[in-house]
Design a protein around this nucleic acid. Structure first.
Length: 367
DNA sequence: AAGTCGGGGTA
DNA sequence: TACCCAGACTT
């Protein structure tokens, strides 16, 4: 029989009273705070998934300005939504956002759902986001558990169960629910997260003046820097992308990325991905090259004009860019021909954006 | 339970 | 560098 792991939360004075007091004195003023519009709260929560406030701030303002309500978003063009999301990362959020807006219109008559279960059923909304919307917009008693909550609770209660395990997730969810202030779930949730974001920070928190210094197990045992525990192994795999900025007159070519891969629904230049670093010579002898430039006539290729390592959380992309001018107008299967000036209308990855910026700075004649 | 999906900030 | 950020979804 396994020993029941019970966190003795009764042994620690409840956090709510001190938390509310701290929040009143220290919280940031943000456009999605102090409102009850579930639509705007939802937009902010999706944008802020795995994203810092400073990074998402401008995106939020642009989004709610362009799409003031759920019906406006539901009617939006897919590419425009991707363009608004460009540079923010985790693009499935944008795709799910649009899909969810359309479901709100179809399933709920255009009114954002008002129960936890209904909210949770929308694409892109998991346990955290459903609890956030339900408590902030409707005052429903659901505890949020995000990275901040894991950290604050792990430290105060001295919990070293890894947070990225099923056991850890269940344990913290149960504790957060037990601690939730039922009189003000939304205010309590926001305060707990804000406390983690501003004060109980991952590294070098100033525990000296902490409002919980008298009851923090981690501080008492000198384990503040060790908690929370995460198993997390980040294996970074390399990929090799060879891009071609193809020109014929004022035309160039782009393609929308499809399939289960990074940057789905974003646009990119003609690409040959290789299993390892490849020279231009090798690329020119490949089948992909032949297929790409079939019917191009004489093809003149620049030397590599731009190269970089694009680092993602679990990938490092070794990218090389070349400029190609073709004698004939290309058929270029899979790619769409556009005027060079229209490049800016298409949502692209930060990698491609970086190349385009570099090009327009160094070779303005090509743009 | 493990893998995938971005980009940027911080020590 | 390594870790983290108002996580969700797929396999």
């Amino acid at each position: 029989m396994r020993k029941e792991k019970k966190i003795p939360s009764e042994a620690v004075a409840p956090l709510a009273a001190d938390l509310h007091d701290w929040y009143a004195r220290n919280h940031r003023v943000l456009p999605w705070r102090g409102i009850t519009d579930a639509y705007r709260i939802w937009i902010s929560e999706i944008i802020l998934q795995q994203t810092r406030v400073v990074q998402g701030y401008a995106y939020y303002n642009r989004f709610v300005s362009r799409f003031p309500d759920v019906r406006a978003l539901a009617a939006a063009d897919d590419d425009e939504v991707m363009k608004l999301w460009q540079g923010l990362g985790y693009y499935s959020r944008a795709r799910n956002l649009l899909a969810a807006a359309r479901q709100v219109v179809e399933r709920f008559g255009g009114e954002f759902p008002t129960t936890y279960e209904a909210i949770r059923s929308l694409p892109g909304i998991g346990d955290y986001t459903a609890a956030a919307i339900a408590s902030f917009a409707y005052g429903l008693p659901h505890a949020v558990v995000d990275g901040n909550v894991y950290r604050v609770l792990a430290r105060i209660y001295g919990i070293d169960t890894p947070i990225d395990t099923t056991e850890g997730k269940k344990l913290f969810a149960a504790l957060a629910d037990e601690l939730l202030d039922r009189k003000d779930p939304g205010g309590y949730n926001q305060a707990l997260m804000e406390f983690g974001a501003l004060y109980c920070v991952p590294r070098s928190p100033q525990c000296g003046g902490c409002i919980f210094a008298d009851r923090c197990m981690a501080l008492a045992t000198g384990r503040v820097e060790e908690l929370p525990v995460k198993l997390g192994r980040t294996v970074v795999k390399p990929r090799y992308f060879n891009y071609f900025y193809v020109r014929h007159g004022d035309y160039t070519w782009v393609r929308r990325r499809e399939g289960r891969d990074i940057w789905r629904n974003l646009y990119e230049l003609p690409l040959i991905e290789t299993a390892e670093e490849a020279s231009l010579d090798v690329l020119q002898q490949s089948e992909e090259w032949a297929r790409l430039f079939a019917g191009a006539g004489r093809v003149s290729v620049s030397a590599q004009v731009y190269a970089c390592k694009h680092v993602l959380s679990h990938r490092v992309i070794h990218a090389r860019f070349y400029v190609v001018e073709t004698e004939q107008l290309l058929p270029m299967e899979d790619y769409v021909r556009i005027a060079v000036g229209e490049l800016g209308d298409y949502a692209v990855s930060r990698l491609t954006e970086g190349f385009l910026e570099k090009m327009s700075a160094n070779y303005p004649a090509l743009f």
